[in-house]
């Protein structure tokens, strides 16, 4: 059983594409639950799942049967998902009212670990009480980063935040996403980061296959398993698995 959070402070880094594809690849091996924590609900959109009518922040934070009732099967046999709701945009306020507000998410995920061997969290891009909750709950924090100076800066911000809450950097794994080989900056940044602790060697190139996922409304790894993008996600997933085993 493992909980993988896909997270970045910045948006538009290929976070949802990563969550959706890794969730699909995980489900080939074991029963997997994808939780869409982002109020935009892009992951839910990819799987054509609408937010259930009576579901929102309150129900999410209550946990237990309130969550179980709202889990939906995707079109893939071993992959279920908990769709996002627009009300999540105010989740921090609700979290703040909870007792033990930093570990609430960890607690509501616990019963789900009995049913699912893998949980993947698609997280919203910010650094808030919800993020803190996710960092406590996750076994690994997977950070997709576009290889630019700015994104290096944001990962430093992440490290600083983890220091502040006393969590250490052990859970963090960074990989490069939306990589464009012809851009000099991209190759330079990747070179400078290579071999640093927590930086994975797999990367996802910038590809139209990934962009077109919105059209097919399913993971590219499912619709085009042999596409370049699919192979890159598979390699990334394998590296994460090896990493988990090594731990």
């Amino acid at each position: 059983m493992s909980i993988l959070a896909v997270y970045n402070i910045k948006g538009g880094v290929g976070k949802t594409a990563t969550s959706v594809n890794l969730a699909y690849l995980a489900s080939i091996q074991r029963k997997t639950l994808l939780i869409d924590m982002d109020p935009q609900g892009s992951a839910s959109y990819y799987f054509r799942i609408r937010s259930p009518e009576k579901f929102g922040t309150k129900k999410l934070l209550k946990g237990g049967k309130h969550i179980e009732r709202n889990i939906r099967g995707t079109d893939f046999p071993n992959l279920d998902m908990l769709p996002a709701d627009f009300s999540y945009r105010n989740i921090d306020i609700a979290l703040d009212d909870c007792k033990k507000s930093q570990t609430r998410v960890k607690k509501i995920l616990e019963p789900l670990e009995e049913e699912y061997e893998q949980i993947i969290l698609d997280c919203p891009p910010n650094l808030t009480l919800l993020s803190e909750n996710i960092f406590y709950a996750a076994d690994q924090i997977l950070v997709p980063a576009i290889p630019t100076t700015l994104s290096i800066l944001s990962s430093e911000q992440l490290y600083a935040f983890l220091d502040e809450i006393g969590l250490g950097h052990d859970k963090v794994r960074i990989f490069f996403s939306m990589v464009e080989k012809r851009k000099r900056l991209h190759t330079e940044v990747i070179q400078s980061m290579q071999g640093k602790p927590g930086v994975l060697t797999s990367s996802i190139p910038y590809l139209t296959d990934v962009e077109r996922m919105g059209v097919y409304r399913m993971p590219v790894t499912a619709s085009h398993p042999n596409a370049t993008a699919s192979r890159a996600y598979q390699q990334l997933w394998d590296e994460i698995q090896d990493d988990v085993q090594a731990q």
Binding site: P52, R69, I71, R72, G73, D80
Partner: peptide, 10 residues
């Protein structure tokens, strides 16, 4: 034969 396989939540 015919079988119906449920999808969770539907």
């Amino acid at each position: 034969l015919v079988r119906l396989v449920a999808v969770r939540g539907y």
